[in-house]
Each structure stands twice: as structure tokens, then as C-alpha cells.
Design a protein around this nucleic acid. Structure first.
Lengths: 234, 234
DNA sequence: GATACGCCGATTGTTGACAGTATCATGCGT
DNA sequence: ACGCATGATACTGTCAACAATCGGCGTATC
């Protein structure tokens, strides 16, 4: 038996309680989301099979799963390719995400507790500190955790899973670095509005603030990618 | 214009342009959604393979796809089971659906055309007639088409695909007959409100009406399934 | 009579092999 | 030199066989 430290070695001999294909889904997903498999690149079944020490069967099952999740694209007789998101698709996803996140805000507002409120304000003060001292690299993961916490606390597992799926999918966008940016202090001002709305217990107000938060992120992305018709060179 | 009068015989020898597994996904999906494979029942790989004249490989790929879509559940060494939706899950899906449908309304309101408006009012007058004459069986498909048309016209393919997926998933709910019901005339009054909002071009107003339409359907479902604590028998 | 144990059939998990197809390189003709 | 036909090659699509596992049933024991 391998002494399995949880270092991510390409070895999944440990798992026997879960199907090999399921484990492969997670592993390949990780390869994609970490960028090891770049968007647009082709996935070679044999290479992956050798890498993970299995045959092609489970690999194929895993890729079909990832296809349904929208992370890869399967072309007959050509192979499977890591999905590459166009700007249009990224914008579409933002619109789906804002709808889901808004709904999460609405649901959460309707059954807030003091503990949840405390956690939320905790996130915000943390982010305020990091924003002031300009520690961008530290700000981003807290920001992510803040959003995740809201969605997870909303009490709708289906909604949470879908939201997470779309956030993951956005990693396939070519300029995903732009997604992360967008004004720390500005962003945190919106966070305060969101938490205030949640604390008030007003579902409608919570929806609006949460929806708008994501919608503004979409607009920032659009502005930075598709600069408003201004004479560029020429 | 679908001139494809595809009689559904269990034969997919025609298809060669698309992978066998993809075709199987559609076929099995159909079996599930038509109820031929009942929620909770187990899917036997060999039986399906014989039925479609293939080996188990493609069947397995297809079921993994369906698992990611949420239509079936795979238990290791036990087999795949058609998902059975609990009341809680059905409610969760309604909340996701209302969020997506509301967003579709918002998006559609922001780029309405006369043609779209004409189509929408057409649906409504059709449904009015059917509701008056009490032709329930004919009302339901038109109602479905009306909702699909809105979502498809919103101009967000991702949103449309997701919405459709959740509507399909609701078919796995044990009492899906209840989902369809819920007052014809009442429903159509809400439809009018929706179309009025769309015609006004007010995205916010369109969102509210569309969201509320689904949310009310959820409430009707809850009311009919979880009857207010009243002494039942005993 | 009830419970624990062990065998057996059925079904899934996984594998290696074979067939078909798209891509790429080579060589020929113009 | 360029374009096109042709063959080699690598990869995917599909299949049938082997191994592992689970649930049910009968039996034995207390």
C-alpha cells in the first residue's frame, strides 16, 4: 500500500470505494482548471491512460462526463479538446451566474442567522485590510471564499453546485486574469451593500445587490476586453 | 422546420456522423423522459446493449454523460439508477429555474422586436382559446412551447440549455403530473403580465414577472404536495 | 424459530485487441 | 516551385473476454 500523502502525484491507486472513472473525472478536471491542460489543446486518451496507469475505457467514461459538464468538447474521430471559451460565451456565463447568485442572495436573506452575519462581516473586514495594504494575491482567494460561503449558505444544494460549475467553467476563458481583477475597494463596497441587504432580511433587495455585483463584474470584463469604440491606433 | 418525422424505433444504425455514445445519450434520455425507464429503476447495461445492438462500452459512456447531466445516479458495483427526485430537490430546481427564467425575461425585454411580440401574443391567444374550451391536453404543449420560445429568444444559448436541462430534470419528480396542473386561466393571466413587461422593454419588470411566474408554480406545487397540516386519515 | 455464515448466480469494472478514420509526409506531375 | 494524389501513421470507435464485487438463498447452529 502506498503511503498516500495528499501530494498530487498522478496516482489514484488508493481509491477503491469510488469508481475509477469518477476519480479520473476529478483528476482531469484538476488538470484543466490548473491550466496544465490548456484550453484548445487535445487530450490524448492513450497518454492519459498511461499517465494514470489505467486503460482507455475509464478515461473515455471520464471525458464523456466532462463533456456533459461543458469542460471539454468531443469531436468524432478527432478526439476530445479542452473547451475554449469565446468572449460571447464568457458573457453568457456571467448572465447565468448573476441570475444564480442573485437567487442565492434572495434565499439566504430569507433565513439569515447571527452566526452567518458574523461570518459575512468577518470576510469583509478581512478583505478591507487586504485591499488597503494592496495585497492583491491574498485578496482574491478570500473574495472567492466569500462568494462560496454565500452560495453554500443559501440552503439550495442544486443552486450551489450549478453556480460552482459556472465559476469553474469561466477558468476556460482565455483572458481569465481579467476576470479576477476589477477594483478591490470598489468590489468590497458592493460586498457591504450585499451584506447589508442580507442582514435586512429583504429578499428582493438582496437579490438586486447580488445580481448587480456579478453584472458589474461582467461589464468590467466587457469594458477591458472590448474597449469602447475608441480610435485604437490607425 | 423539422421535416424529420423520426419514428422512434430502437435503431440508430443511420447515424455515423455522430458518435454512437452521443446517439445513445439521446435515446436513453428519451426512455427516461417518456417514463419508459421509471425513476428509481435500475438500468441494466447488457439489456440496453442488446436492445440497441451495441456493446456495453458506448452504453457506459452514455450513462456517465447522463450522470453528469443529473438524470441518473451511478453506484459502484451496483449499477446505474434513474434519478428519483425528492420534494426538496424539486423545490430546489424550481428556485434555479425561476432565476434562469427571470434572467431570460430580462434579456429578452432588452432586445424585443415586433416579430417576437407577435409570436408571443399569438401563443397567448391560442392558450386563451384552449383554456376556455377546457382542452387541457392541448394547452400544456402550447404552454411549454411558449416558455421555450421566450428562453430561446433571449439570445443566450448557455442560459437556454441550462433552463431546458432543469425542465427535463423535473420530469424525474414522482408527482410530475402535479407540475403540469395549476390553473389554466390563472397561468395565462400571468403570461399576459409577462408579455406586457417584455413589450415595455423594461428589463427589471420583465425579470420580476417571469421570476414570479415560476415561483408561483413552485408554491402551487408545494401547496398540493405538502398539504397544510390537516388531519389526514388517522 | 431466529440468526449467522457461506456459496452461487448475476452484473458491473476493467482490460487488450481489432477496425475505421483523419492527419501528415512523401513523391509525382505540371 | 507549387499543387495534388497517395501512402504511412497515429489515434479514436467499438467490441468481446476476463476479473472483481454484490445481493440472494439455502443451510447450519444456537
Amino acid at each position: 500500500m502506498s503511503s498516500t500523502t495528499s501530494r498530487h502525484v498522478d496516482d489514484l491507486s488508493v481509491v477503491k470505494s469510488v469508481s475509477l472513472a469518477s476519480a479520473l473525472v476529478r483528476e482531469i478536471e484538476r488538470l484543466i482548471l490548473t491550466g496544465e491542460l490548456e484550453p484548445g489543446s487535445r487530450i490524448n486518451e492513450i497518454h492519459l491512460a498511461n499517465r494514470f496507469g489505467t486503460s482507455r475505457g475509464p478515461i473515455r467514461e471520464a471525458t464523456r462526463s466532462l463533456e456533459a459538464k461543458g469542460l471539454v468538447e468531443v469531436v468524432r474521430n478527432r478526439g476530445v479538446f479542452v473547451r475554449r471559451l469565446s468572449t460571447e460565451e464568457a458573457v453568457e456565463i456571467y448572465d447565468v451566474r448573476s441570475a444564480l447568485f442573485g437567487q442565492a442572495g434572495r434565499l439566504l436573506a430569507e433565513h439569515m442567522t447571527d452566526e452567518i452575519l458574523a461570518r459575512l462581516t468577518g470576510f469583509i473586514t478581512d478583505m478591507d485590510k487586504l485591499a488597503e495594504s494592496g495585497e492583491f494575491d491574498a485578496y482574491y482567494p478570500v473574495n472567492l471564499a466569500f462568494h462560496s460561503f454565500i452560495v453554500d449558505s443559501a440552503g439550495n444544494k442544486t443552486l450551489a453546485a450549478e453556480y460552482r460549475r459556472f465559476v469553474d467553467k469561466l477558468h476556460l476563458f482565455r483572458a481569465r486574469s481579467l476576470v479576477q481583477g476589477g477594483g478591490l475597494a470598489v468590489s468590497n463596497r458592493e460586498h457591504r451593500e450585499m451584506v447589508d441587504a442580507l442582514a435586512s432580511g429583504d429578499g428582493e433587495r438582496a437579490f438586486i445587490t447580488h445580481w448587480r455585483h456579478v453584472d458589474r463584474a461582467k461589464k468590467r470584463l466587457l469594458a477591458s476586453i472590448d474597449p469602447p469604440p475608441r480610435r485604437l491606433s490607425s
